[in-house]
Design a protein around this nucleic acid. Structure first.
Length: 579
DNA sequence: GCCGTTTTCGGCCCGACTGTTTTCAGTCG
């Protein structure tokens, strides 16, 4: 059982305990432990074997033992008993907005409702409104919530949420009365997926702004409207008007002198905030979303940097605010100089119409130049991937001739000739050495036999990346975002092999299949692996997706030198030649 | 269930908003 599975079970236990009406701090302890496990960099089985779990903050004696049982036996009697006495439908009912464990429990105990479908019927028959503590409005909200869950209610990918946030902010900006405005929450921390959009603004007249917000075009539901905070559901068409995407959006308004505190507070994460409040307490101060204050004085701050400084901390970038050691590092002045989007000088994993891309070589080159890139690596698919028009050796020659021709025509951008070469089932490569030798670089990727058992998949990838012609490993885990699945691979072993052979490992930045997450990247860095941020671009627009890769790199505390494509074109050319 | 330079017991962030209440519990972030 890997750490994600164990973390999932601990999370579920926490939820089940809430539904049992347990001490909330006890259930919280399970959620906290789940979070801690997700961020574990090393292999969970190793940590268990070496008795290192206890050292992780949030995991004590009891949880260490439960995790150990789970990892070694794959089961946990305590969990199974808990599941037995809680109908699984109750967990789904918790996802309804405004429904917490107490309400779900009341519905179950007093009406015997244990499924969303039964709840809907009970609402329609008016039985819910008759319950003590419930009423007509609650009943109506539940019905709306069931509807919303049916059509949306899912976490959104960050690229979709950003697009919607841009629309919302743009619409708000058109009006008067706004002093400062910022998108905060998990969106500002660049999490892969987000639950909602949080917008914070400062103003002297919150009332009219609230009115405007809830009446914006695209607002399909007003969930709450107060003097300083409103919640709506916002819907917008994305992808050339082909897909309607909905997401809850919150607006909060504060006075301008409160803005830095509110910005920090609403950016989170929750764990980071709790740690910050504790630190404020150690300084004899109280921190909330409005102020940092002692018993007899308020400490004025113009921006977040002032706030951190007042607590003896260097400025912590939003991407680092996950309570994973950033406070300690900031206190000791040991925060890294994070890689910046502008540090990227080019990218490598890009397809063209020669295989399954939808733009030609020249179009891609021009688009890369417009983005300010100094070089672009073209890496179409190799011959085995027939479904994607993989290049045969003959077409490789023709494509390379075209790249030379485009390079001669287009100035200001250097083109590298690459290939995304399939790793065949046995770990051999899809071209003979004489063909491989014609490329500036080779990205090796798995595109077939995804179902191989872990040992075979691992051996296959390690064999491929130890090949002297292979420059970088493409989508190392094949992880698909939202579905969270990839191929089964011992990533630790793969990263160690990459470190041994000096193989670059790609941070695949395409939001659809973001591959290495920040925990993986931290581990990779610790093992001495250098990374490369690639968008797996199939269109000119996809090139801009490297920004998401930069976000992952920042979350992993990577600096400019940790990432290969921060080098100049000349440095890249030299490095590739040496191989 | 976790945690400890005020603590091994008694805390555990805290304020806004809603709905059902008549002073507050539940939910959310």
């Amino acid at each position: 059982m890997d750490k994600h599975q164990v973390a999932g079970i601990l999370d579920e236990i926490g939820t089940l305990l809430e539904l049992q009406g347990e001490n909330p701090f006890r259930s919280q302890a399970y959620h906290n432990a789940a979070r801690a496990l997700e961020q574990l960099e090393e292999n969970l089985a190793d940590a268990v074997a070496a008795d290192r779990l206890r050292a992780i903050p949030g995991i004590g004696q009891t949880l260490q033992e439960k995790i150990k049982v789970l990892v070694t036996t794959g089961r946990l009697p305590f969990y199974e008993e808990l599941r037995q006495k809680t109908p699984p439908g109750l967990v789904r009912m918790l996802r309804l907005p405004g429904m917490g464990p107490k309400k779900v429990r009341a519905l179950y105990e007093q009406l015997g409702i244990e499924e969303l479908e039964a709840l809907k019927v009970a609402c329609q028959e008016g039985r819910v409104a008759a319950l003590k503590g419930f009423g007509a409005k609650t009943q109506q909200k539940i019905l709306e919530g069931i509807d919303f869950l049916g059509q949306a209610g899912q976490r959104l990918r960050i690229d979709q949420a950003r697009a919607l946030a841009d629309v919302l902010v743009g619409q708000m900006r058109d009006g008067p009365g706004i002093i400062r405005m910022e998108v905060c929450g998990s969106l500002r921390r660049w999490k892969e997926t987000v639950n909602d959009i949080d917008i914070l603004l400062s103003s002297d007249q919150p009332g009219p702004l609230m009115e405007r917000f809830v009446k914006l075009p695209g607002v399909t539901q007003v969930v709450a409207q107060g003097e300083t905070r409103s919640s709506v559901v916002f819907s917008h068409l994305l992808y050339d008007n082909r897909q309607l995407v909905s997401i809850p959006a919150d607006l909060r308004v504060v006075r301008d002198d409160q803005f830095p505190f509110a910005l920090h507070y609403f950016t989170g994460s929750k764990q980071h905030n709790i740690a910050m409040r504790a630190r404020a307490q150690q300084h004899g101060l109280k921190l909330n979303e409005y102020e940092l204050a002692g018993p007899d004085r308020r400490i004025p701050c113009r921006d977040e940097a002032d706030l951190f400084r007042a607590l003896g901390l260097a400025y912590i970038p939003p991407e680092l605010r996950e309570h994973t050691g950033e406070m300690e590092a900031a206190a000791e002045g040991k925060l890294p100089q994070l890689i910046e989007p502008a540090d990227l000088r080019g990218t490598f994993h890009c397809h063209t119409t020669w295989s399954d891309g939808n733009a030609g070589v020249e179009e891609m080159a021009l688009a890369a130049r417009r983005l300010g890139f100094k070089y672009l690596g073209l890496a179409d698919h190799s011959q085995s991937l027939t479904i994607a028009h993989g290049l045969t050796p003959d077409r490789v020659r023709k494509q390379q001739a075209e790249i030379d021709a485009v390079a001669a025509r287009v100035s200001g951008i250097k083109l590298f000739k690459g290939i995304e070469c399939d790793i065949l089932a046995d770990g051999s490569l899809d071209f003979d050495d004489d063909v491989l030798a014609t490329f500036d670089y080779v990205v090796a990727s798995v595109h077939s036999h995804f179902g191989q058992p872990e040992p075979e998949m691992t051996a296959r990838i390690i064999r491929a990346i130890s090949h002297p012609r292979v420059t970088m490993l493409g989508h190392a885990t094949g992880r698909l975002l939202l579905r969270r699945e990839g191929y089964k691979v011992d990533l630790e072993a793969v990263l160690q092999a990459a470190a041994r052979h000096g193989t670059l490992v790609e941070i695949n930045a395409h939001p659809h299949r973001l591959d290495l997450d920040w925990v993986h990247c931290k581990r990779a860095k610790a093992l001495g692996v250098r990374m490369v941020i690639n968008p797996d671009a199939h269109s000119t627009e996809d090139l801009a997706l490297v920004r998401y890769g930069v976000a992952v790199a920042r979350q992993a505390w990577l600096e400019k030198d940790d990432v290969f494509n921060t080098r100049t074109a000349a440095q890249v050319a030299k490095a590739l030649q040496k191989r």
